[in-house]
Write a protein that binds this DNA or RNA. Structure first.
Lengths: 132, 132
DNA sequence: GGTAATCTTTCCAGTAACTGGAAGGTCAAG
DNA sequence: CTTGACCTTCCAGTTACTGGAAAGATTACC
């Protein structure tokens, strides 16, 4: 499939997909006319990248995650140790998102925007009373 | 407190804190010697920024979140509608993180790195069999 | 078959969000 | 009163895109 189609299915702009190719993240086939030709597997990987980038992983981290995703020949211990450290990071991100969620819900529920100078939320936000 | 201290407490590099000041996200007091002087409230906000950035929100989105955080005078409906749309985004991110977590756990549990050409994970990854 | 619209290609420049480093001022310790 | 660890501003470089030009390919219509 052409890049426009892959873009629609992955949620990534065509520009970004070409950029990911430039930096060696994903190399699609080429059709006889020179057009890039994406397989469904490529599209899955693009969607995977779209998600991980949106969740705050850097491109280099995404490269690692993609390597895990694509793993076909690396040593088990190696793969597992990277996966485990990524899992810890994911766990942390989920917790932080829950705290942010809690804070915003609290705001929606309790702050009425009626010119009050101090909001009780300020106490609980930014992990001051929720983590570490 | 000085910027180095604020940096330690917020987890943001001093460089980044100065950059956030440049773009108008957070304006600390200045001591008589010209040094930036951060209050605990400033540090909370920096930590808040550190987290939201790490969770994949853009600086402009963080500006909105910070405005919610700081809200003291805006109309309730306005604040609530922004907060609600951010809550949806957070909900989505949590779901995506859970799926990523599930995928990686599956990888750690079932892929042994023993040269196998196709991993069963490929089916379930990237939301193909888990969402939408 | 012609041609206009809509792809696609590469390349180069611009933006967003930092990041590093130079040149110099400030401060606490010995 | 100097040494070292801070801090300041400024300017240049990096990462991760993003927009736009110029040109080739494909499809859609007459």
């Amino acid at each position: 499939m052409n890049i426009g189609n892959a873009s629609d299915k992955s949620g990534l702009p065509a520009k970004t997909i070409r950029y990911y190719e430039d930096i060696g993240l994903l190399k699609p086939d080429r059709a006889d006319n020179g057009y890039r030709d994406y397989s469904m597997s490529d599209v899955h990987k693009l969607r995977f990248l779209q998600r991980s980038r949106g969740l705050g992983f850097s491109v280099e981290e995404c490269r690692q995650l993609l390597a895990l995703y694509e793993d076909k020949s690396r040593a088990s211990a190696d793969v597992k140790s990277i996966a485990k450290s990524k899992l810890q990071e994911i766990e942390r991100k989920i917790i932080e998102l829950r705290e942010l969620q809690h804070t915003l819900k609290h705001l929606v529920a309790h702050c009425h925007g009626d010119q009050r100078p101090d909001c009780p939320i300020l106490e609980s936000i930014s992990g001051t009373a929720g983590s570490s």
